[in-house]
């Protein structure tokens, strides 16, 4: 599968995750979000930066529990809640945020 961003074709897997993580850019993130019927707000971006930092540090995309914890540590306890992340990234926040952030699909994630 491919995703076309500003005339460039980018390869994604069957579920929409980037095949090559180096293809990611903020524009690509917006395109992935758009394909998921999401418009990215500053609140989304704050969380996306947290999940990208997590990946840099720990070299894997987090499951929901550590994702919530990481957001809480970085953005404050009021943001480190499943319900908050569910409003930003409906359905499965850890998977959806990872996808938009250009990370692999989280393993160990239910």
């Amino acid at each position: 599968m491919t995703l076309v961003v500003e005339g460039t074709s980018i390869e994604v897997d069957d579920e929409g995750y980037l095949v090559s993580l180096s293809d990611w850019s903020e524009t690509v993130a917006e395109a992935i979000a758009h394909s998921e019927q999401l418009e990215l707000t500053p609140e989304h971006w704050a969380v996306l930066n947290v999940i990208r930092d997590f990946y840099q540090t720990f070299e894997h995309a987090p499951a929901m529990r550590p994702f919530v914890k990481a957001v809480g540590q970085a953005l404050g306890a009021d943001k480190g809640k499943s319900i908050y992340l569910m409003t930003l990234f409906p359905g499965s926040p850890a998977k959806l945020a990872a996808k938009i952030a250009g990370l692999p699909k989280p393993t160990n994630c239910l």
Binding site: F54, T57, F58, E59, H60, P62, R65, P66, K69, A70
Partner: peptide, 8 residues
């Protein structure tokens, strides 16, 4: 790096 994530 993965082990470092255990506390998370």
């Amino acid at each position: 790096a993965n082990l470092a994530a255990l506390p998370m």
